[in-house]
Nucleic acid binder design. Structure first.
Lengths: 158, 158
DNA sequence: GCGTATGTACTCGGATAGGGAATGTCCGAGTTAATAGGG
DNA sequence: CCCTATTAACTCGGACATTCCCTATCCGAGTACATACGC
């Protein structure tokens, strides 16, 4: 079970866009330079963020991406869900109903099995933590020197 | 991000082995019949459980698998870790140090970035929930009819 | 009848192919800005 | 000098290859039981 690296790229790019909102919109190529990433592939990873409304895209010359909402209104959960999809990590295929389960009384499988419930509970705790962290919180935990350095980097290659 | 289906298979098989400990050891083929699963592939999924000590294997005729410990001592976290591996879902590749990060002052990257810390915190909450659920808890949440049915199924094809 | 040696059947363990999703790359549609021409 | 039409460059969006990991399968090593033989 491994999360796509696009999540890390997406969150970092969101932070940059939050820092440099006054310079928005920023094209993908510029963002790729900030982190030395393959531009085409980074674009593919940011597309679902735009489709989810987390990023706002502008076409044409001087176009690019800007943050779609305030940093306080975007949580880590939003970014993860947009890129990874909303499917649960644990997929219950109801194998309890197969084989020996064929002979079960009707209604015995009305409720989800204990394994599925336990997994859902754990995933819910995970989601709750992700939802409690906003981009603004992440910015507060990041040294201001990083923002200044990134701003200089972008303005230098303008 | 999708968890291997082997986890579901493994936990269900552990429950069966806990129920029918007096009939142990049970060969993989018998367990596969209980859930109508491909026997060879199920065996491959149970192997890491045996390597981790969660299951105890016995070779030769009348051999098979038995539970390695008491159901109270085996948690969902143990099973998930054994099959999925202990690696974290979110892999931080430190892209903050690339590109614009090259010009950072030494020591700025001594601590993990806020994104990584937030992800770790969420994963820790997830692991904590999984670790708090033991096989005994799952058995308590499962109707006794399922155990009786499974026992009859095994004894019938003995 | 009893003990022993042998053979056979059954088990797990690791090594070997196949399929689908994530990764990586490409081209086309649309928009903006600059530019050149005319008034 | 100003306005407008045209052109050209730049952007995102989606469609197309490639690689890697999960899925699925196979063969070999080891063990216990059953059997046959000798005593």
């Amino acid at each position: 079970m491994r999360m796509s690296e696009g999540v890390e790229w997406g969150v970092h790019c969101c932070l940059v866009l939050a820092w440099l909102d006054d310079l928005a919109p920023l094209p993908v190529g510029r963002l790729a330079e900030v982190f030395d990433l393959p531009p085409e592939y980074l674009k593919k990873q940011l597309q679902p963020l735009a489709k989810a409304g987390i990023l706002r895209s502008e076409a044409g010359a001087r176009g690019g991406y800007r943050l779609g909402s305030d940093p306080e209104a975007i949580s880590l959960m939003d970014v993860v869900t947009a890129i990874e999809g909303g499917t649960d990590p644990f997929q219950c295929t109801e194998i309890r109903q197969r084989g020996a389960g064929r002979a079960a009384a009707p209604g015995e499988f009305a409720h989800p099995c204990g394994i599925s419930k336990a997994m859902r509970k754990a995933e819910l705790a995970w989601r709750r933590e992700l939802a409690s962290q906003t981009l603004a919180d992440l910015i507060a935990d990041t040294p201001a020197s990083a923002e200044r350095r990134t701003r200089r980097f972008i303005e230098r290659t303008a």
